[in-house]
């Protein structure tokens, strides 16, 4: 007699986790397709349209290239914080704060050309850093849940950008009254619409992967993240690491905001982020803590986001993409747990 039972492993194998992600995405798309079919659309035709228009032309690929830049960085931001066991749900707000600070430099600082870009980059990273400062200190010194504080600051940043773009810094006499004047300093393009922000984002992800894997600092950060008690006994300054890692996470998201301003939008306006901060959470979850994985996960999310933009002409909205993203996240979470199990056979 052989009995089958489920056995739970302490950690899922990488192959099982990857399989769970692929299954989750496939299942989410099938569910979305069935719902689309119910409301009278042809999901297969829509799917074909998405694939041909985003992968079949250089325009489509350039759009993907533009979308992937902020997604790599917000995904990296969430991933970096995750390494030390912190949830940065505020990449959205830090993105806005970075865009705000970079625009301030771009609009008002007496710098020219390349120096203006450098100034904007520093300001953008600093803006994101400032935006996560209070949550980081509150978590480090008072153990206040950073998840909620980072998230609530998103709304403050969005309101701040809304205010300056429709009021204080508004372009007077412009066509639309809801954006700042055009910022002169621009990141040059190297391939169609795609600017040098893409290699910067990719290099930053690779650099983070290297720092985390091969330096003493990276080792200590990962150790505290996976076992805070062990870190304490080894005499690692956990609090200082927590603060620096969270500030770094904010600065990366802020830099994403700066690149979006200087690379593709060129003026500060409300809604500049396209939910990149929230989608960054999704990127980080799909990448499963790997900074290099972030690059691939961001490419995938860029494709999904781009699909939503293409399908807008078909009556779908970015909200629909948000819902589908949520569904993927939900199924991934379930799949992650289920991939811990294996069927074993009891011999008796």
């Amino acid at each position: 007699m052989a009995d089958f039972r489920l056995q739970r492993l302490p950690s899922a194998t990488p192959a099982a986790a990857l399989g769970a992600r692929i299954l989750a995405i496939a299942l989410a798309l099938i569910i979305a397709g069935v719902i689309l079919a119910f409301v009278g659309k042809n999901p297969l035709a829509l799917g074909l349209q998405v694939v041909t228009s985003s992968l079949g032309s250089s325009f489509g690929l350039e759009d993907l290239g533009l979308l992937v830049i902020p997604l790599i960085l917000t995904g990296l931001s969430v991933t970096v914080a995750q390494q030390i066991g912190a949830w940065n749900i505020g990449a959205e707000g830090q993105f806005y704060a970075g865009a705000f600070a970079a625009s301030a430099v771009g609009l008002f600082a007496p710098l020219s050309g390349g120096w203006s870009l450098v100034g904007m980059g520093v300001a953008g990273a600093f803006g994101g850093l400032v935006w996560i400062l209070i949550p980081a200190l509150a978590r480090a010194y008072a153990n206040v849940n950073e998840l909620i504080t980072t998230l609530l600051l998103n709304f403050v940043a969005i309101l701040l950008v809304y205010y300056v773009s429709t009021d204080a810094w508004r372009e007077r006499g412009g066509v639309a009254n809801s954006a700042t004047p055009r910022i002169k300093a621009e990141i040059p393009e190297f391939w169609g619409l795609v600017h040098w922000g893409l290699p910067i984002a990719v290099l930053l992800a690779l650099a983070m992967a290297g720092l985390l894997a091969f330096t003493r600092w990276g080792y200590e950060v990962r150790l505290i993240g996976s076992n805070p008690a062990a870190g304490k006994y080894l005499g690692i300054a956990a609090r200082r690491h927590l603060i620096t890692v969270m500030l770094l996470s904010g600065a990366i998201a802020g830099l994403a905001g700066m690149l979006e301003i200087a690379g593709s939008v060129h003026r500060l306006q409300g809604g500049i982020s396209n939910n990149y901060g929230y989608l960054g959470i999704m990127v980080a979850v799909l990448a499963r803590g790997s900074s290099i994985g972030v690059i691939f996960a961001a490419a995938l999310m860029a494709f999904i986001l781009n699909s939503g933009i293409i399908l807008q002409t078909q009556g779908l909205t970015t909200s629909t993409v948000l819902a589908i993203t949520g569904l993927i996240l939900f199924l991934t979470a379930i799949g992650d747990e289920l991939s811990h199990y294996r069927v074993v056979r009891d011999k008796s």
Binding site: W87, Y278, S319, A323, T325, G326, F330, A333, I334, D336
Partner: peptide, 27 residues
Amino acid sequence: LATVTIRANQVLCGLALTLIGTGLAQT
């Protein structure tokens, strides 16, 4: 079902529920 029965990560499922609810409601 996801967090209690299957015991999936509560933070992720909660964030997912926020995205699904907000996106679906707006649609």
